[in-house]
Nucleic acid binder design. Structure first.
Length: 676
RNA sequence: GGCGAGGUAGCUCAGUUGGUUAGAGCGCAUGAUUCAUAAUCAUGAGGUCGGCAGUUCAACCCUGCCUCUCGCUACCA
């Protein structure tokens, strides 16, 4: 697998510097990468791991504006918080850089310039919203307005958070500048685009044909994107925060954040080592991107296309992307504060980084979305870490001290049981290696625990506490073997639980050892281990777990009122009077073919019989609504939907969860009765 | 609607170029044990491998249809 490569370069998604880090980040990206990198380091392989904060983009500038500070203040703050969290959890980057660095600006600008000079971009002029008072274009989230799809009136220029649709700012109804509050005007602006469609044949060959070994979720997602047809993507924005576009005479334009962020991997490597080119431009380097599934398109399609277009760079050999981690059944969300934040975790579970590392690895969303629950966290700690691993090591140390004053006894003649136990060590080591190299961290961790299980079983079978009186010589052999298992555990556990590994080495009073030493004997006869060892793991009580669950419950309660939409702007009575709402009866209803939500409905409005297209098919079957009386806005401009003219709108009440209910009279009334 | 990923024991997940009794960890039950943080060890119960058809001597694994979950995409009051 790694034979053809002489060195490895690992990158992990750059965290966006507008908030702290939570368990989802850790489980999906940074823990797997950390395990992988630590393993290779322990094997003395040439490996580098680069990462850093992603500090550009519109959301950061908006946050800065809201707080009345410069964007740099925001990114400085979160860069420090994020960096500290990673350090506290033993996430062992070789460098954790940031994209607001000078070196990154130079690198990204240079990259852009090369593509620009080589005519790898197309230039397009388009109309964009412009704030005349502030004299600037309004990129993405600088505009809010009503979503043309769902009618949500706080939709952003790039996306509606209500219905999740990607938008173009121009499509918003009643757009509003989020800087001045003014109504923006359309104005022409020029931007550069990366023509992904041109790279499609290459991408198809490279991924679909040459990388069938990628994880099925990654491979499938790429195939889906390529088959859907790739389109040119803008690489610049009208903004004054970011890497300025390095083209003569261009002002107030920066590189679009998705374009500059992955180049951050390159700049971080440059900052780390003068040999950076060896890691980026040499075919004998293996490039790996650890990411979450939301980043697949960038790392498998867009960034490779950029690298290919540039020409000097190697492409990723693999992109081990994980799925998402949910929390107690709900999606993790920064804005809803539905998360376990790393810095908060350490307040409640001081010095227990490895418990979280263990739980997140054992529960990692490797093949599908997975759920983190506090109950599971407690069970993993109490039933596995305390009962299996901690217990085995404690028994071994206690017995060794009791019988031999902590001196490693020599082995005598071996029984079959002894030989089996010893043979288990290299066998499990091989299993662990096999799984690690295939990015199967969950399984690898299980095999590590199996070594502790093997130790517990060996102890139960040999019963040294009974043998000590009748056959003390054989007990020396048994305890020697148990101590060797313990020392092996310290090595093999290091990539997963570095803090625990260090503690075991300390218990054994030896310096930390590397991977090659594992598999056989480590401790020499007569070596003195620690006399009074502490415990590796503490039991977690129900009260502690309940406290965490309560905290989340409180978050849920806090979130409640926010879900009720704020009142819209006041209108005049005349405005209201303009609406003509009538009660009508549904005569016919049928599903609009090839849609999921649309029903074509014929209504007797009293005035006439007319057709209305309504997006309610997910909640109502056509046959169930025939004969129902509903309220209809009858003087709405007709609109063609899927080729059918919709003449009006059925009024619906919508719950928080999106479920729909008719607004109807509580008794039968005449069709055509007006509603006011 | 299209595309992608997934649906295997109570829970979290393995599995197979298709081949005798489908696996692990946790949980549960029973027994053993006391060196150990009531931890450990053994044994066992528990699955029509999402559903229905088909291909085959033989399917959890292949094919088709359907269904549920997640994501992307289209459409949308």
């Amino acid at each position: 697998m790694d034979n053809q490569f002489k060195r490895t370069l690992v990158t992990t998604a750059l965290p966006y510097a507008n908030g702290p880090i939570h368990i989802g980040h850790l489980a999906g990206v940074y823990i797997p990468a950390d395990i992988y990198v630590r393993y290779f380091r322990s094997k003395k392989k040439d490996i580098l791991w680069v990462c850093g904060s992603d500090e550009h983009g519109v959301p950061i500038t908006l946050k800065a504006r809201k707080e009345g500070v410069e964007p740099q203040v925001i990114v400085d703050r979160y860069h420090e918080i994020i960096k500290k969290s990673f350090a506290e959890f033993g996430v062992s980057f070789d460098i954790y850089s940031r994209t607001s660095n000078k070196i990154h600006h130079e690198t990204a600008a240079g990259f852009f310039k090369k593509l620009h000079d080589d005519n790898q971009f197309i230039e397009k002029t388009s109309e964009q919203l412009y704030d005349e008072q502030e004299k600037q274009f309004l990129a993405d989230r600088y505009v809010t307005g009503t979503c043309p799809h769902c009618g949500y009136d706080k939709a952003y220029g790039d996306q509606c958070e209500k219905c999740g649709t990607s938008l173009s700012a121009k499509d918003l109804i009643n757009p509003q500048s989020s800087i001045s509050g003014n109504k923006p005007v359309l104005k022409e602006t020029k931007h550069w685009y990366l023509p992904l469609d041109k790279h499609e044949p290459f991408l198809r060959q490279w991924i679909i044909e040459e990388h069938k070994e990628w994880k099925s979720n990654v491979y499938g997602q790429c195939k889906s994107w390529i088959d859907l047809g790739l389109q040119a993507r803008a690489v610049s924005r009208d903004l004054n925060w970011g890497v300025p576009v390095p083209v003569e005479g261009v002002d107030k334009k920066v590189l679009y954040v998705w374009f500059d962020a992955p180049i951050g991997y390159i700049s971080a490597t440059k900052e780390l080592t003068p040999d950076w080119e060896l890691y980026w431009k040499n075919k004998e380097t293996r490039l790996l991107h650890f990411i979450g599934k939301d980043n697949i398109v960038f790392h498998c399609i867009i960034f490779p296309a950029m690298l290919k277009a540039h020409g000097d760079y190697i492409l990723p050999d693999n992109v081990p992307a994980n799925e998402f981690l949910n929390l107690e059944g709900d999606k993790i969300s920064t804005s809803r504060n539905w998360a376990v934040w790393l810095h908060e975790y350490l307040e409640d579970f001081k010095d227990q980084q490895d418990v979280l590392r263990y739980t997140l690895t054992a529960n990692a969303p490797e093949t599908s979305d997975n759920d983190f629950t506090w109950k599971n966290f407690q069970a993993r700690n109490n039933n596995e870490l305390v009962a299996v691993l901690g217990n085995f090591i404690n028994r071994t140390l206690v017995l060794s001290n009791k019988y031999y004053g902590g001196k490693v006894p020599a082995r005598g003649e071996l029984t079959e049981q002894d030989k089996d136990a010893l043979a288990g060590i290299p066998a499990l080591k091989a299993e662990i290696e096999k799984n690690l190299e295939q990015f199967r961290f969950r399984e690898a961790l299980k095999q590590v625990m199996n070594l502790a299980r093997l130790g517990n079983k060996y102890l139960a079978e040999t019963e040294p506490w009974k043998l000590f009186k009748e056959n003390p010589a054989s007990v020396e052999t048994i305890m020697n073997i148990n101590l060797q298992i313990t020392a092996n555990l310290a090595i093999l556990i290091e990539p997963f639980m570095p803090f625990t590994s260090a503690k075991i080495f300390d218990f054994l009073q030896i310096d930390a050892l590397t991977w090659e030493k594992a598999g056989g004997d480590i401790l020499v006869d007569g070596h003195q281990i620690i006399k009074k060892a502490g415990l590796l793991f503490a039991k977690i009580e129900d009260e502690q777990i309940q406290a965490q669950v309560d905290k989340l419950e409180q978050t849920k309660i806090d979130n409640q009122p926010k879900n009720v939409k704020p009142m819209k702007d006041a209108i005049s009575f005349d405005d209201f009077q303009k609406m003509d709402i009538r009660v009508g009866t549904i005569l016919e209803a049928q599903k609009v073919p090839k849609t999921k939500k649309l029903l074509q409905i014929k209504i007797d409005t009293g005035i006439d019989q007319r057709t209305v297209v309504s997006g309610i098919a997910e909640y109502f079957k056509p046959e169930d609504i025939i004969g129902k009386q509903v309220s209809v806005l009858v003087n709405l401009d007709p609109r063609k939907i899927k080729g059918i003219e919709s003449q009006g709108m059925i009024l619906m009440a919508e719950n928080e969860d999106g479920s729909l209910y008719f607004i109807q009279p509580n008794d039968k009334v005449e069709n055509g009765s007006s509603v006011s």
